[in-house]
Amino acid sequence: MDRQDGRMDFDALLAQAQAAPVDGWDFSWLAGRATEQRPSWGYARLMAQRMARSRVALDVQTGGGEVLATAPRLAPLTVATEGWPPNLARAARLLGPRGVAVLAHGEDRFPFRDSVFDLVVSRHPVRTQWPEIARVLAPGGTYLSQEVGPASVFELVEFFLGPQPEHVRDGRHSRWTRRGAHDAGLEVLDLRTERLRTEFHDIGAVVFFLRKVIWMVPDFTVDGYRDTLRRLHDRIQADGPFLAHTTRTLVEARKPAG
């Protein structure tokens, strides 16, 4: 503890964050340390509504299965895929008792036949595989996803990496979402983006976030960025929470019935 004011010191905060487990997609460790405004549409609620009226459903890049598990009623046949081994094991433990088959899958061709699913969902996919989504959707089937939008949390990214080129900041713009869906032969039913407040209240929250969301600062390690972490710690101590902005895009698309 800092002797002057009782606040945890820099090294103690780093040690706590480095010891925290980062498997799955559970951010509860950040309670009291960081806040994130939620999109107005409520993805989990929308997903659950569509899941309840589906027959055969697929959750792509399910993470640890935490979001899919919130649906009170799943499709009679529900399958999930995940590519990161720690998440895969966690998802299997969580979803297996509900009859969900969890398959190991990265970013290659989906291991399913054509026109199988009447619903495909995905929350925060690393990359949306539009041709594969269109291929496995049954005619009239729908795809529902909440994507990470353009320049999300880039105040934090650029604190560590410096100014990013425009093509990187723009890479997740909704116009690319619309184009990807259209090029795959899908009809976009809903497409909207919101910019939301995110606050990091201590440096431990920053370390945990960057350890978990590894594509934000791809080469992040505490030792490699110790001086930058110290500068950010001092800034938070002096000025209060570090403010960033997340962006989220909701997309719903349908495969033509014909």
Rank of each mutant, 00 (worst) to 15 (best):
G141H: 03
P139M: 00
R109C: 14
R127S: 13
R113T: 09
L119H: 06
A138C: 03
R123K: 14
V136Y: 08
T128L: 15
P111F: 06
R109Q: 15
S115Q: 14
R109F: 13
Q129W: 10
T128G: 07
P111H: 03
E132C: 09
R135Q: 13
A134Y: 10
T142R: 12
R123F: 12
S115Y: 07
V121S: 14
G140S: 04
F110P: 06
R113I: 00
V121E: 08
T142C: 10
T128P: 14
L137C: 13
E132F: 07
P139S: 03
V126H: 15
V116T: 11
D118P: 02
F117Y: 10
I133G: 09
D118I: 00
L119D: 07
L137K: 11
V136R: 03
V136I: 09
R123Y: 13
D118L: 00
P139C: 05
E132W: 09
P111D: 05
R135H: 11
S115G: 07
V126I: 14
L137Q: 13
P131T: 02
A134C: 06
A138E: 11
I133K: 08
L119I: 07
F110T: 06
F112T: 01
F117K: 04
F112E: 01
V126M: 14
D114G: 10
V116R: 09
T142G: 02
D118Y: 05
V136L: 07
W130C: 07
R109E: 15
R127F: 14
E132G: 08
P131S: 00
V136A: 05
L137A: 12
F110M: 12
G141Q: 02
V116E: 07
R123S: 15
R113W: 06
V116G: 03
A138T: 08
A134G: 08
V121K: 00
Q129K: 10
F117Q: 04
V126C: 12
P131C: 02
P131K: 04
G141E: 01
A138N: 02
P139Q: 01
